[in-house]
């Protein structure tokens, strides 16, 4: 059964939320879901753009308080 791993990238400027997601995506197994937590408003657009281009799957994206919760499934 695949796991949901939470990546806390709130309040960070370098390497930043998308870099953190790419780092953990490399370590994940195909089928795993990763949940990125980000306070960077750009993440809501940046992450789906990369996910679509590289060929993974967006599971969901919602803003709770000041934090974006973005779920992505590793597809390749």
């Amino acid at each position: 059964m695949s796991e949901v791993k939470v990546i806390d990238a709130c309040n960070t400027f370098c390497p930043g939320p998308l870099m953190e997601l790419i780092t953990y995506m490399k370590q994940a197994q195909i089928g795993d879901t990763l949940e990125l937590l980000s306070t960077d408003q750009g993440s809501a657009a940046d992450v789906p753009e990369w996910v679509e281009k590289v060929g993974h799957q967006m599971v969901g994206s919602e803003k709770i308080g000041d934090v974006w919760h973005i779920k992505v499934r590793k597809a390749k």
Binding site: F13, P15, G16
Partner: peptide
């Protein structure tokens, strides 16, 4: 560069 701008720090 890996993300959608030329450096991770905006």
């Amino acid at each position: 560069y890996p993300i959608n701008r030329i450096h991770s720090i905006e």
